[in-house]
């Protein structure tokens, strides 16, 4: 095994940088989680274990309302972008025309546009159309932004789905719509669930778009957190932040694991490298 031997000469620098990187990545997060259980207000001296900040959170009606708002936004956006993104994936994959390619390029534009631009533009179009800013405007903006994720993931799966299987369904008595419903969509279920979870997680803690498109009451959770941390830090925010990180992390882990559960060949990496957001 000459090959393994040579590569065994580990590049010390790379390993050291990697270890430091993981420390840099996780220390702040663990610090937040740790001090969310501190019984005093201090963020530097851990004086004792307590769940008081979590209890506070679950008694804070304003924060709870924000949490509900964020969950609602994430849920509706996930469903909405799933429907639109899947339609788009099918259209782009099956209509091989110039028009199709133009539409495809347009959908991907939000991915390469700085989010502040998308946010500002959404704010202008909503106020221009006379819409009252609120949860619905946040949802509209988030769906617009999330369609691309669904499209990229679903289209990837669709491209590897043999057309012959759809023909087999039609051969066995399915109309085109039935073959779509009974054969093609079931094959896409892992990709659909994965992209739904991913969009839910991204929208749930998205700040920039929500910041520009939300109304006053109720504000999505990240917007409320932002306004309170601009001027300082507090253990209460640590508690909320820990919860948010935990929820998102679980959803994303689930989305990454999903293709494997369904014995799909596509790796979890394909899921992410397809798009980018923060």
């Amino acid at each position: 095994m000459a090959r393994a031997k040579k590569l065994e000469r580990k590049p010390l620098v790379a390993v050291v940088v990697t270890v430091l990187f993981f420390a840099w990545l996780y220390v702040p997060i663990f610090a937040v989680a740790l001090f969310s259980f501190n019984d005093k207000k201090s963020l530097s001296a851990f004086s004792g274990f307590s769940t008081r900040w979590y209890v506070d959170f679950f008694h804070n009606e304003a924060l709870l309302e924000s949490l509900r708002a964020s969950l609602l936004i994430a849920l509706v956006s996930a469903v909405g972008s799933l429907v639109l993104g899947t339609m788009l994936a099918f259209g782009l994959e099956r209509v091989r025309s110039r028009r199709g390619r133009v539409v495809g390029a347009i959908t991907l534009l939000p991915l390469v546009t700085p989010e502040i631009v998308t946010g500002v533009a959404a704010l202008l179009v909503f106020t221009g159309a006379g819409l009252k800013l609120g949860l619905d405007t946040v949802i509209l903006a988030e769906i617009t932004f999330s369609i691309a994720y669904v499209t990229v993931i679903v289209r990837g799966r669709l491209a590897s789905f043999p057309l012959e299987v759809e023909e087999a369904a039609r051969d066995l008595g399915c109309t085109p719509w039935q073959s779509l419903r009974l054969v093609t969509l079931p094959a896409l279920v892992p990709a659909l669930i994965a992209s739904g979870l991913l969009v839910f997680a991204l929208v749930f803690d998205d700040f920039v778009l929500a910041f520009f498109t939300t109304g006053v009451d109720p504000q999505p959770l990240p917007v409320r957190i932002y306004s309170s941390i601009r001027f300082g830090v507090s253990p209460a925010i640590n508690a909320v932040g820990t919860l948010m990180l935990l929820v998102s992390a679980l959803l994303i882990v689930a989305a990454l694991m999903l293709p494997r559960l369904f014995k799909s060949r596509s790796s979890s990496l394909d899921l992410i490298t397809g798009g980018e957001r923060r």
Partner: peptide
């Protein structure tokens, strides 16, 4: 995955984590 998961989980909270760590009484 250990790199990807925190990156896709709340950007805002991670920024906040740095603020808490670096602040004058952090």
């Amino acid at each position: 995955a250990a790199i990807v998961v925190p990156f896709f989980a709340s950007y805002l909270i991670r920024m906040y984590a740095w603020k808490a760590l670096l602040s004058d009484d952090g």
